[in-house]
Amino acid sequence: MQNYEWASVDDAPVRELFPGISLRSLWTNGVASAHVLRMDPGSCWEGIDVHDPGPEEVYVVDGVFNDGIRDYPAGSFIHAPAGSSHVPQSEKGCTLFLFYPEG
């Protein structure tokens, strides 16, 4: 039998990060973590999101995500290396799966 860990997005507690931007934490092992981020239409991250100490992996589940420079439609994968930064926003709204392999 596998020692799988699993979580349902619907059961994960919701934490509002900024107006119109909410996070549901799905899993962590103390270092790496996985989350679902929902951005309402017209929402924008307050300040600059800096990827430290490690990279951020983003999969756009639905809607259109914008990193402050370009749009990424549903189905897009983004690797943001450690030390990179962006200003997350969404004109139309979106749902993102986020993975932080190094915290």
Rank of each mutant, 00 (worst) to 15 (best):
M1D: 07
Q2H: 08
Q2Y: 04
Y4D: 14
E5L: 13
E5S: 14
W6T: 15
A7T: 12
A7F: 02
S8G: 13
V9K: 02
D10P: 09
D11L: 12
D11Y: 08
P13D: 00
V14S: 14
R15V: 15
R15Q: 14
F18S: 04
P19D: 04
S22Q: 04
S22F: 13
S22N: 12
R24I: 09
L26R: 01
L26P: 00
W27M: 04
T28C: 00
T28M: 07
T28G: 05
N29G: 06
A32M: 03
S33Y: 08
S33C: 11
A34S: 12
A34T: 09
A34K: 11
V36H: 12
V36Y: 05
V36F: 15
L37H: 01
R38M: 15
M39F: 09
M39D: 02
D40Y: 06
P41F: 09
G42S: 10
S43G: 06
C44A: 15
W45T: 03
W45Q: 01
E46I: 13
G47E: 01
G47R: 05
I48G: 02
D49A: 12
V50I: 14
H51F: 02
H51P: 06
D52V: 15
P55K: 07
P55S: 08
E56M: 04
E56H: 05
V60W: 01
D62Q: 10
G63S: 02
G63Q: 05
V64Y: 04
F65I: 09
N66A: 03
D67S: 04
G68W: 00
G68N: 00
I69F: 07
R70D: 08
D71M: 15
G75W: 10
S76W: 08
F77T: 11
A80I: 08
P81K: 06
P81F: 01
A82W: 11
G83N: 07
S84N: 05
H86G: 00
H86F: 14
V87K: 01
V87N: 06
P88K: 06
Q89P: 09
Q89K: 09
Q89Y: 11
S90A: 10
S90T: 10
E91R: 12
C94N: 01
C94F: 00
T95D: 07
F97Y: 13
F97Q: 03
L98C: 14
Y100C: 02
Y100S: 04
P101C: 09
